[in-house]
C-alpha cells in the first residue's frame, strides 16, 4: 500500500515555491453501484466543503475519487463519519502556463525518470496558469528534476 504520511522535511523545503506546492489529497473508496459518487458529493456539499479539484479513477468493480478540498481535515472527517473509507496523501500541485505546449514542456522534464501515476486539473487554476494535480514517483527525483530544469 502506498504511504499516506508527509514526505521528508527536506523534500518540503525544496517545495517552498509558489508555483510548485504539495497538496493534501483525499482519496475516497467508492463502491461499484450507481450513485456512490453522488452520495459522497452530497455529504461534502451538506458539510459546506468546497472542492478545488476532483477526479475519478475506476475499475469495473470499484472506484476511487480523488479530491482536493479547501479544508482537508473537515472534509476527511465528514467523509469518514458518513461511512466512506477515505485517507489523505500528498500530491504535487504544479502550475502550468495556459498555452500550447505548456504541459508537454513540463512532462519532458520527467521523461524516463519519474512516473506520473495520475494527474488531473484544478478547477480554478491560478491566475492565467492551470494548476495540475500530479502524483509523481519517486517524489525526491521529481523534486530534483523540477529544480534542475530551472522551471521554477
Amino acid at each position: 500500500m502506498s504511504e499516506s504520511g508527509a514526505p521528508s522535511s527536506a523534500t518540503e523545503n525544496w517545495l517552498v515555491d509558489d508555483r510548485v506546492v504539495l497538496l493534501d489529497q483525499i482519496s475516497v473508496f467508492l463502491e461499484n453501484r450507481p450513485g456512490s459518487l453522488a452520495a459522497a458529493a452530497a455529504v461534502l456539499a451538506e458539510a459546506g466543503t468546497n472542492l478545488r479539484a476532483l477526479s475519478i479513477a475506476e475499475t469495473e468493480r470499484f472506484g476511487i475519487a480523488r479530491l482536493i478540498a479547501d479544508d482537508t481535515e473537515q472534509a476527511l472527517a465528514t467523509l469518514q463519519q458518513a461511512g466512506f473509507t477515505s485517507r489523505v496523501n500528498k500530491v504535487f500541485g504544479i502550475q502550468v502556463p495556459d498555452r500550447p505546449g505548456g504541459l508537454a514542456h513540463l512532462l519532458q522534464v520527467f521523461d524516463g525518470h519519474v512516473n506520473v501515476e495520475y494527474m488531473y486539473a484544478d478547477l480554478k487554476g491560478v491566475g492565467s496558469n492551470s494548476l495540475m494535480i500530479m502524483k509523481l514517483e519517486p517524489v525526491d527525483e521529481a523534486v530534483r528534476l523540477l529544480v534542475q530544469a530551472g522551471l521554477y
Binding site: 500500500m1 502506498s2 482519496s27 473508496f29 475499475t59 468493480r61 473509507t85 477515505s86 485517507r87 501515476e117
Partner: peptide
C-alpha cells in the same frame, strides 16, 4: 469485505491487488 482505512490506497493498482 469492508474496506479498512489501513488497507485502502489512492492507487487503484494497490486496491485491485488486495482484491
Amino acid at each position: 469485505v469492508e474496506m479498512t482505512v489501513e488497507a485502502f490506497s489512492d492507487d487503484l493498482g494497490d486496491v485491485l491487488a488486495l482484491e
